[in-house]
Structures are given as C-alpha cells and as structure tokens.
Design a protein around this nucleic acid. Structure first.
Length: 911
RNA sequence: GGGCCGUUAGCUCAGCGGUAGAGCGUCCGCCUUACACGCGGUAGGUCGGGGGUUCGAAUCCCUCACGGCCCACCA
C-alpha cells in the first residue's frame, strides 16, 4: 500500500541505490542484433559544481536515453568530465591568489599536483550531482579528457594532422589575453560594447610646414608602435600625401603615408594610424604594403606592459591602461611646430571591444609564434556532410550559422601558454634549435620532432639520444573535446566499443558551443573515421532567470539545481525544465514553474493509489496480472473503448514528438492525457463500473494497463516517481522486468476506435454543458436534477444509450426522453439535441437571463461567420469537401443551440 | 554591416493554412469516500503595425516597429 503522500527524498534515494546496485545503466555491445543508442555527455568542465544549464542538458539526454532503452535499443550514455583548460586553471589561480600565491611560485610540477587533487574532488561533486538528477549514465565508462586513454587519442590525432601537413607552427597575429597569459583562438574571443573615447592626434607632415595629418584612435598608447598612416586611395583630401612622410610625435620617428582601400573616408578623419604589431587590421595593411612601410614594432609585451625597446623611458614598464593616460598627458602637453598640442580632440565613443571569453579582459592582439591547424580541408568534409544531410541540426535554424562558420573557417590557433592541459607533443632537439633563455613564442623557425614521448632521434638532424626540450605549451582544451565521441571508445584502437557504439546517435548541447565544440567534433569524426560522429545535434537554449537575464554569480540570480531538487523533488524539477525546453528557445526559469509539475507528481501518485487501493482493493495480483489480451472487445463500455483509443493515439503522438526531439511537446501531451482524459473522465467513470460485476474486470484491467503504460512513457521525464509507482503496479500489469527502464515501451494495442472517440467527445460536451448551467444558475452542487432530452436523431440515441454515464457525471436524478418541452426549463445541448433541466423552484430565473443573452449573441456571431462561408461560392468550390462539411455541421449545431437558448429565454420571460 | 530568433489571454509560453490553446494567476461554487499539490464552473486575446498570396492566414510572402542573440577588421 502506498503512503498517503509522495516523499521524494526517500524514494529517490531508494532507487538511486537500487539502480546502482543492479548496475542498471551499464552497457555492453549487443550480440542479439539490437541497435545501439549512444549518447556521449558534453563533459562538464571541472571548474566546480553543476548549474541549472547542466541540469537541463542532462535531463534532456537522460530522457532520450531512457526513452530509447524502453523502446528496445541498447542504450549507452557515456559520462565524463573535461579538464577545461584555461577555465579550470583560472579557478586554481584564484584559489592560489587567496593564499597570496601565483602559479609560478609553485612551479609547473607542484601546480599540476594541486590541480589533480582539485580535479578529483570536483569530479566527485559533478558525478554525484548527475546521479542525483537521475541520469542513466554508464559509470563503468567514465572518461576524462586528460586521462591516459584520451591522451593517446589526442597524441595520435596531433601526429596525424602534423604528418598530413595540417598542423604547423607559424608566426601570426593572435588574440592574446594579458590576464590569462595565453593566446586564444578566434572563437574564444567575444566582443562587448564598451564606452570609450576617440582621440584625434596631429602628426606633422614632413616637408610641408603647417600641414598635419590628423588621425583618430581609441588606443593612443599604441602610437608608439605606429609604422605608417593610411588613407583611402581615392580620398581627395589626402591624394597629394600618398608616399609622403609624417613625423611620429614623442619619438621623432618617420612614418610613411600609405593608400589603402580599407580606410573608411567617412569615419573619424579618414586617416588611420597603422600599428601592425597591435592591431589585426593594421597588420593586414602592412601585409599589403610591405615594401612601402616598416613592419610590426611591438611596444606592448605579453604581460600587457610597455616594452623597453623603442619606447620612451617614461613609459617603459607601464601597464597598457596607465600607458594610455601617460601618453595622452604627454601628447596634450607636447606642442606641434605650430604651437598647438598634438592631442587635438576627444569625444565619447561606444564600440565593440574584443574580450577573453574566460575572464572578459580586453584582448591584446600580438604577433607571436604559435601552433596552428589549417582547417579548410577538414571543414570541407563537415560542410559536405551537412549539405547532403548526413548531419542534421535540431532546430534547423541553427544550420545556417553553422554552415556559414564552416564555409568561412580560419586556421585554428592550437597552442596555449598555460600549464593545465595536454602538453603539445613536440620536442626540440637542442642541436637544431637555439632555445637559450628565449620564450618559445618569440623563436622563429623552430624545428620540432613530433612525438608523444621524448623522441629517440631528431627528425631534422637525425641525431639519436640527444638533448630535447618539450614544447612548454599545452593544446587548446577544445582539441581534446573535439575527439570526445571517438576517444571515449578508445580510438584510435579498433575496439569493439568503437565498432558498436560509434557513430553515436545524437549530441545534446547548448548553442553557445556550436562552433567551439559541435562543428569540431564533426570535422574530427569525418576526418579520422569518415563518419559523422553523430547524425543529429539537439541544440537547446540557455536557462535564464525569470526576467530573461543570463544567470551569473555576480548578478546573484543563480538557481542551484540541488536546491530545487531538495525543495520540490527531482522529478518535478526535471519535468519543469523539460516542459519549457522548446526547440531553439531559451528558458526563463522561475521557481514557481516547478509548482505545476510537483502537483502533477502528486496527481500521478494519487491515481496510482486509486487504482491499487480503491479499484484493486490491495488484493493480491492474479497470476499474469490483468492483461489487455483477455479483454473481450464486444463487452467493453464506451468509456473503455475511448480511453484505450486515446492512449493509443497519445502514445503515437509522444513518439512522433520525441523523434523530432521535441521533448517539451511529448511531456505536455502525456501530462494532458493523464490528467484530463485518464483522471478527470476515465477514473471517474470507472467508479460506477467497478461496482458493477459485469464491468469490473474490464475496468480494473484498463485502469492498470493504461496507467502503467503511461507511467512507462513518463519514466524518461520523471524517473523516480514513475519507478516507484510502476513497481507497485507491476504484478497487476503482469510485467516481469526488474526496473521500469527495462520494461519496454507500451506496444500498440490496436484499440484505434474513431467512433468511440467521437461519441465520447459528444457526451463529454453534453456533461460540460449541463455542469455549466448548474454552476451559472447556482444549483446547489449536491442537488440532483431531473433532465429530459427530445428527438430521435442527433445525439438523442447516444444520450439514451449512455444515460447512466451522463447522469453520474452531471449529477442528474434522471435523464429521460420527453415528447414535449418541460415548462420553465433551462437547456443544455448535446450537438443539435437539447437537454432540458426543469428548474421550477430551484433557482431564480433572473440570474440566467444575462447569461443567455450573451450566449445567444455569441452563437449569432458564429452563425454569421459560418453562413458567410457557406454562401461563398469559391469556398464551396475550392475548399476540401470535409472542410465544407465541418462548417455545415458547425452551423447546424450553432443554429440549434441558439434556438434552444431563445426558447429558454422566452420561457423564462413568460414565467 | 550581414544573419538568426522573438513579438499570441494579467504572467510564462504552445500552436505555425481550416471555428484562438495550456499552465499559473483572476473570479464563483464545492473538504463529491485517489488527490484541496484537489474537483466543477467563469472571465480574459481585432495572435506587434501595414501591405500581399489564398475560397480561407496567428500560421505563407513583403515591409515597418520594438526586443534579444550570433557573426563581421570600421581605427
């Protein structure tokens, strides 16, 4: 016997333990021909606890895994975590900072040791949260992007790309994060609108006294590194200055004036100072005018401070921001030859600043030596896979941006100057490479030997057993993430797992990492295995706070999933987020949104209590339970046939929704079925049926089977409560599986029955109509009324046949056929058939009038509309016949009902 | 500067070519023996504006407005 109320805590704990004990979610390659259904988790970074976005992401995956396991696939959901590169290193650096330490105080080795300890704890937290959320993960397969197996995958991939000439070392302008101390790839840079100033600087033109070239800049400190001034080739104002020279203030250096079409004549002064060492555009200008101007002159170092070389002593060593102030001060006091200051103006200006996606600090573009990967050939494969439909994105609207990104792909900067990550498997023979006291980033022409271990001999000089230095940098964390669907199955080894589980089925993730991760997995999978790693990607939105703002610690609007689970139960919380996860939409999460689902859990609980305690009276289950197969269709009641048909239809609907990854729609469909169809109508109608020995057996069977079937369909969304309830129903349902997970989905029963559905719909409407009248006219709820219907066609035969049902549901004393309209009666309708409710002495008629008039008016509008359509020749000729029929019957019903209401009104007035 | 998404009941959102829906909230009435985390009923929308296609448009096309996101080298 079930407790009176559902207690989530105890039940959840019970099943977590039982599932674990049974190793329920462990998977092995099937040998009986069953297909795999594989999902690899987007490995959370080991940066701390999971947030509500993870809860959404993993609930969706869990629902898919459980759904397809119920449908007979060999489901395998691979858990794991990501080492998380810069993000994780930053977490550790913050901890160190609290201890007044920097990573260099510890040294690389000690630092990494500490990281390992942190990672161990963090994994435990994360995996514990996933378990709590109910995730059906195969923990025997837990992987980490930096464990030994994954390291082999990474080294192998690097080696192959290097051998194929796709990975190379080169000098480029890269996005440098001064705070994180590392280069970043282009997609790790975000742009942020910031308030700034636009300053005007006057550069004196050489040989033309009194002539100045005025440049506009947001970064005056970089003027120290200027090597040219650019103007538009067609700009009349400056045509005479092409090839002229200007003097760079504060330094006395000479700059060339170069014409370049990139310059916008409308913006600023139409003249641009060119700093090829610190601006990507300027760098490009230099590449176009190499013979005409000096190349990059770096003035800002990797630490963000002004360099010594070529910088006036007063600025040397100043951080960028301070240097800006100092340079501005100097330019304001520095007089040009005409006596006026060099600094000629300042205006407010808002513009996009490139910032680091991990620390939001302004990016400093710097030229350095880094490892890059040439992406075009790899992207071409992914592009082809997308175009020919081997890879599909849900919702499809993400396809265009995805495609666009691949089509315009840039080389990928792979190396990071941090310690936490896969060390780049490149070694430098000290005979071939002069590395004495030089930062690798500045050494040109290095000759690497690529190898996971210290190489036996140099690939360049062939010297064996020499001294080698391993590249100090690590790989972009996304490089190992990109290999995830391969590496978790042991690739490049030809493992049985790889053969059975790869390619995986679907990748579920948020759109913020579509390029960073999804696209790269596609590229890697196609390049190495010639197969898409997953044919489908389900791209969900971001969970925001209830006002639509992004959740963030600094805003203090973060919702902790654990707290939600504690307060409302895991199932209610899961159902709340899934029902809001409409394809392609962000989710504004309000805690109140868990209330409905919590009530639904309660509803499920009590429906099952009804079936067990009330319908089955807690009697022991007969051998084999109450199978549907034993039902004699000819003996079923209308309600029986109706609920079975509805169940069949709803099952198909939910299946179609899930096939399109529209889990919110599936959840909604099942919610509505259980609550409205099953509880509000079938359960109510089963009460008199159970009291009737001729019908009791069928009612019991249908209650048990439909409810347990619905529980199985809901199990992917709310695993705990459905497990608990399904277990209780199991013997009655005649099921033998140990857990709901293994119980199999409801099979089609063949109970399609359009007639029953149509008839039931009619009777439900009739009951609704009677109830409405009772309620509006304030008939005391407990009072049973007499009712009469008339006619021999329309719904009359149906009412006659199912008078008991209507009587029970509408609280009628009697429902009989009458030959004449009873006096002083209100009227309800069943289609075109009137149901009269004599109300003499029961209510005050005045109250009914206003309401009747309103209803008559409303029906009048409907009639006008329907008549308009039916009077329209084009409609009659061109619309499908069934549509015309629909309108006709709608018109007839409205006309009939309006007639009854008018009669009623007249009758009331007469009284 | 491109591209995408959104604008539907008081709130949060479904629906996306055939009479406007759900949940929550409102209001009225009910402790009717599974459930007051409940039951029954009720009010509330010219589906952002304007054009067009169609027998018919919230749903398709164009355009405008207002939000939001993504991409892009305007100093």
């Amino acid at each position: 016997m079930l407790e009176k109320a559902y207690a989530p805590d105890a039940v959840e704990k019970k099943w977590v333990d039982a599932w674990k004990e049974a190793r329920l979610f462990d998977s092995a390659p099937a040998t009986d021909g069953r297909r795999s259904y594989t999902v690899v988790i987007p490995p959370p970074n080991v940066t701390g606890a999971l947030h509500i976005g993870h809860a959404l992401n993993n609930t969706l995956q869990d629902a898919l895994i459980r759904w397809h396991r119920l449908h007979g696939r060999e489901a395998c959901w691979v858990p794991g975590t990501d080492h998380g590169g810069i993000a994780t290193q930053n977490v550790m650096e913050k901890q160190l900072k609290a201890e007044k330490l920097a990573r260099h105080d510890l040294g690389r080795e000690k630092f990494l040791e500490r990281m390992q300890v942190w990672v161990r704890d963090c994994k435990k937290t994360i995996l514990g949260q996933l378990v709590r959320l109910g995730c059906a993960l195969d923990f025997s397969r837990e992987a980490f992007t930096m464990d030994e197996v994954r390291a082999r995958s990474v080294h192998h991939a690097f080696q192959r790309f290097y051998d194929e000439g796709l990975i190379y070392r080169g000098s480029r302008m890269v996005n440098w994060c001064v705070r994180c101390g590392t280069a970043l790839s282009d997609i790790e840079v975000e742009s942020e609108d910031r308030k700034a100033k636009l300053w005007r600087l006057r550069y004196p033109v050489k040989g033309k006294p009194g002539r100045y070239l005025v440049v506009a800049t947001t970064r005056p400190e970089t003027m120290l590194g200027d090597t040219a001034v650019a103007v538009h080739p067609e700009d009349e104002r400056y045509k005479d200055l092409h090839g002229a020279e200007v003097e760079l203030p504060l330094t006395g250096r000479t700059l060339k004036v170069v014409p370049d079409a990139m310059v916008d004549r409308e913006f600023g002064t139409g003249a641009v100072k060119v700093t090829p060492a610190h601006d990507p555009n300027d760098y490009d200008i230099w590449t176009r005018h190499k013979g005409e101007m000096e190349g990059p002159r770096p003035v800002i170092g990797f630490d963000g401070k002004m360099l010594a070389e070529g910088v006036p002593a007063e600025f040397v060593g100043l951080p960028r921001e301070k240097a800006r102030e100092a340079v501005l001060a100097a330019l304001a006091s520095e007089a040009a030859p005409d006596g006026d200051p060099i600094l000629a103006g300042e205006e407010d200006y808002k513009h996009a600043v490139s910032v680091c996606y991990r620390c939001q600090q302004a990016i400093e573009p710097l030229v350095s030596e880094q490892w890059f990967m040439k992406m075009e050939p790899v992207a071409a494969k992914a592009l082809a896979a997308y175009d020919d439909g081997r890879f599909k994105i849900y919702p499809a609207s993400w396809g265009k941006p995805y495609r666009n990104w691949l089509a315009n792909i840039q080389d990928w900067c792979l190396s990071r100057q941090i310690w936490w990550g896969h060390r780049i498997p490149a070694w430098y023979c000290l005979s071939c490479n002069d590395l004495k006291d030089k930062p690798f980033m500045t050494v040109k022409g290095l000759k690497p030997t690529v190898s996971a271990e210290k190489p036996a001999k140099c690939a360049h000089c062939g010297k064996a057993g020499g001294d080698f230095l391993q590249d100090p940098d690590v790989l972009d964390t996304w490089f190992s993430s990109a290999l995830w669907p391969l590496s978790v199955f042991g690739w490049p080894e030809r493992t049985k797992d790889l053969a059975f589980y790869y390619p995986t089925e679907v990748l579920v993730t948020g759109y913020e990492i579509l390029y960073l991760w999804v696209a790269r997995m596609q590229m890697m999978g196609l390049w190495f295995e010639d197969k898409v790693p997953f044919p489908h990607a389900l791209i969900h939105g971001i969970v925001r706070d209830k006002s639509g703002k992004k959740m963030s610690k600094s805003l203090g609007n973060v919702v902790d999933p654990l707290v939600m689970m504690d307060k409302h139960g895991t199932d209610a919380f899961r159902f709340a987020i899934v029902s809001q996860a409409h394809p392609g939409r962000d989710i504004p999460f309000a805690e109140e949104s868990v209330t409905g689902p919590r009530n639904f859990v309660n509803k499920l609980w009590n429906s099952t209590r009804y079936v067990l305690d009330y319908a089955l009276k807690n009697e022991p289950a007969p051998a084999g339970g109450y199978p549907l197969e034993k039902l004699d269709r000819a003996k079923l009641s209308l309600a029986d046939r109706w609920i079975l048909a509805r169940f069949e239809a709803v099952t198909a609907e939910a299946e179609a929704d899930v096939a399109e990854y529209n889990l919110a729609a599936a959840a909604d469909t099942l919610y509505g079925f259980l609550w409205d169809d099953f509880c509000d109508w079938y359960v109510e109608l089963s009460k008199p049926a159970l009291a009737d020995p001729a019908r009791a057996e069928a009612a019991k069977t249908i209650l048990v089977q439909v409810l347990s079937g619905t529980l199985k369909l809901l199990h992917p969304f709310m695993p705990y409560v459905t497990e608990e309830l399904w277990q209780a129903l199991k013997p009655y349902a005649g099921e033998t599986a140990a857990f709901a997970f293994q119980a199999g989905a409801p099979r089609p029963t063949g109970w399609k029955d359009d007639e029953a559905v149509a008839q039931m719909r009619r009777l439900i409407a009739a009951v609704g109509s009677i109830r409405a009248i009772r309620s509006i006219l304030e008939v005391p709820p407990a009072l049973k009324l007499k009712a009469y219907f008339m006619g021999s066609n329309g719904s009359a035969p149906l009412l006659e046949k199912h008078a008991d049902m209507v009587k029970y549901l509408a609280r009628l004393e009697s429902l009989e056929l009458a030959s004449a309209r009873p006096p002083r009666a209100a009227v309800a309708v069943a289609g075109t058939t009137p149901i009269y409710l004599p109300l003499e002495g029961v209510v005050e008629f005045d109250k009914a009038r206003a309401r009747l008039e309103k209803a008559i008016e409303k029906l009048g509008k409907e009639l006008v509309k329907a008549d308009g359509m039916l009077g329209n020749k084009s409609f009659l000729e061109r619309a499908p016949k069934e549509e015309v029929e629909k309108v006709k019957s709608r018109r007839d019903e409205a006309a009939a009902e309006q007639g009854f209401l008018k009669d009623t009104l007249a009758a009331l007035a007469a009284g």
